Simulated assay, not measured.
Amino acid sequence: MGEASLHVERNTRTASLAGTLVPRPERPHPVPVGQLTDLLLGQSPPITCWRFLPRQGDRFVFEKGVIMFAHNTEELSHLEVIGSTVAMLNKGAKGQLAEAVEEEADLYRSLTAGGNDSHTTALLYGGGPALTNSAGVPWSAAYIDTIDELADLRSNIAAEARAKIIYERLINVTDDAGIKDALGFLMPREIAHQKSFEKALHSIQPNFPQGKLPGDPKFTSVYFDLSKGDDVRGPWNEGPEWQFDGNPKLAVDGGDGTARVNVPKADLETLKAMASRTASNPDVDPTTGADLGAGQETTTK
């Protein structure tokens, strides 16, 4: 007979899980937890999207706001899927740590197998994940960027693309069929969101450049060749849209490249006084702490 096991469930049947997939890992296993935290608390994955999409939805007009709130709700359900997966994976480690069912060395090896570093998470957080990514970096509200409708749509497209790659890499490093099923559902949803944001962006015409002010035509289509070595040419720097400048001037405005500002007379006098007070004397060679520390002889009276 096979080893007896207890089927443990977590109540995830909530409204936030509508239109999603309930995770069912094959067994508790702490190794993947450290990697899965990238999906919980990384810069691009669900929690960041969940926080910035409502800010965009409040500011976007008409149908674009509806799109943001729809995707925002789904990102919340994705957080639930990933969080539930992490909870299921940590079930065994949580009990082992609490009850000390193994010898110390065996327990440590089981938690750190395969180079896994989530033992830190398990020890400090009672078998649960820390609010950090796999590198130990805490999630930050600084990840939330929202500035302009067109710029935000492009940012959302990039965020979905990055999240898709993270899901793909995690699928490649796990052998748990249940985890693969969950990630295999979530990854295509990033593709769907990216397609939706792309359609929303390109349904606005024109959509480039962002904002209202036009760029100075003297600079909007110039490619400055500032690299050394063989020049690689292509549609990104040649053709009817581009003026290729192979030898850029020091200052494109025709000046000598020196930064200048007109300082008021009162401030100028103050700056001169400060420069005089803090001026160095080039005619002396003082003995310094570094000299003394190096054993340099000093003259004594």
Rank of each mutant, 00 (worst) to 15 (best):
D285S: 12
E102S: 06
L183A: 01
G184C: 05
G65H: 04
G289N: 13
A18G: 12
L39W: 02
R154Y: 06
Y108C: 03
E190H: 04
L53G: 00
T278R: 08
R24T: 12
L153I: 04
S44Y: 12
G65C: 06
D267K: 11
R169N: 15
G126H: 13
A142Y: 07
Y125H: 15
E149K: 01
G239Q: 11
A151Q: 14
D216G: 06
G42M: 02
P240G: 06
P206T: 08
S140D: 14
E104W: 07
V252G: 06
F224W: 15
F60L: 04
L123D: 09
A105P: 00
H29V: 00
T146K: 01
P217M: 06
G215R: 14
G289W: 10
L124G: 04
K91R: 11
E80H: 10
E9I: 01
L97D: 05
V66R: 14
A70N: 12
S227N: 14
F244D: 07
L97M: 10
D148H: 11
M68E: 12
W242L: 02
E63K: 07
R154N: 12
A266I: 07
M187E: 15
F208D: 14
D216S: 09
V81Y: 01
Q296T: 12
G19D: 13
L107F: 04
R154F: 03
